[in-house]
């Protein structure tokens, strides 16, 4: 029998991972580089919640909009201040990717400094903190599970409608496919990229702000989450945000339930190796179906179409 707390653990984690993975994949599709600093936007969210709850002594949920705004601003700053500048000076994809790694290290260091700065002000530990006691309960369910699920459903609906029904969303998909063609049709590609970076960084900030209500927060939260985000995005196929959603849920649930089962079988010391689960899935995907779930679905559709074509030709002759 699986304990209820474990199911709650898994669902909250999968929800937060999905928010991060969708943003990571969308950024990759538009900017064509993996943003290694993406997890750090969640790290920013974690410390905004700490500031709101421990320094301002306010409701931790007030941190959610604040985390969105500050993380979105950080995303815009990284894109325009670092990536666009490097591109202007002829930066290659490799140098741009390495610059995001540098940004990840820098933000992580800044979060460490901020954590040390907060310790005497808050009068509480600013590392490895947990705010479950500040969360509310509704019909026996933790508030963070309800809030993250509602936010996620709203996010998925919003993204789907934006990408398929609005001119901006269609332009974004056009930029993903061919940014040069999109620009000659009137799309300001840099503005589209800036907005998408703001949006995805903001969503990651929200995920981070909800995290300390269920899991321990620390300055390395973002970088530790990155392994799972990376695995989920690659499992999804890196070419579709819908694939990313499926990938995130599979990785999120497998990581929590897998760790539990391994700990039950081999002992609690195995929980320290939890990140091996997404890494193992990542290796399997890259070896067996490198185009991920989206690739599998596309192959299946192509096979069906070709069978239908053969049937039509057969009937014709």
């Amino acid at each position: 029998m699986i304990p209820l707390a474990l199911i709650e653990d898994a669902l909250v984690y999968a929800n937060l991972l999905l928010m991060l993975t969708v943003g990571f994949t969308l950024t990759y599709l538009i900017a064509k580089i993996p943003n290694f600093a993406h997890g750090e936007f969640a790290g920013i969210g974690v410390y905004i919640t700490f500031t709101v709850a421990q320094v301002w002594k306010s409701n931790p949920y007030l941190a959610v909009p604040l985390a969105f705004i500050i993380s979105a601003f950080s995303g815009a700053l990284i894109y325009n201040g670092v990536l666009r500048t490097l591109k202007r000076f002829g930066g290659t994809m490799i140098s741009l990717t390495i610059s995001t790694l540098a940004m990840q290290i820098m933000i992580s260091a800044l979060l460490n400094i901020y954590a040390d700065y907060l310790y005497p002000i808050a009068g509480a530990y600013s590392r490895l903190f947990l705010f479950r006691h500040l969360d509310f309960e509704f019909i026996g369910l933790p508030g963070v599970l309800i809030v993250s699920t509602i936010f996620l459903l709203t996010l998925i609906t919003f993204l789907h409608l934006m990408l398929t029904r609005t001119r901006f969303g269609i332009s974004l998909r056009a930029v993903v496919e061919d940014s040069s063609l999109a620009s000659i049709l009137g799309v300001n590609v840099e503005l589209a990229c800036t907005i998408s970076w703001m949006l995805t960084a903001g969503i990651a900030g929200v995920a981070g702000s909800l995290l300390p209500l269920w899991f321990q927060g620390h300055p390395y939260t973002g970088s530790m989450l990155l392994t799972s985000v990376f695995a989920a995005s690659i499992l999804g196929g890196l070419s579709s945000i819908y694939g990313a959603m499926i990938g995130a849920y599979i990785i999120g649930l497998t990581e929590i339930f897998g760790t539990y089962l391994l700990a039950q079988t081999f002992g609690a010391q195995l929980t320290a190796y939890r990140s091996l689960i997404p890494l193992t899935i990542l290796c399997i995907v890259l070896l067996i179906f490198p185009r991920g779930i989206t690739g599998l679905i596309e192959d299946l559709q192509a096979r069906r179409a070709s069978k239908a074509m053969v049937k039509i030709r057969g009937e014709g002759s």
Partner: peptide
């Protein structure tokens, strides 16, 4: 920029890749 030129009334239809195949 190309998008600014497009707004002025210039259009360019490339030889290949002149439509978005995934749209």
């Amino acid at each position: 920029r190309p998008d600014e030129k497009a707004k002025l009334g210039l259009a360019y239809i490339p030889q290949i890749g002149n439509v978005f195949t995934n749209l």
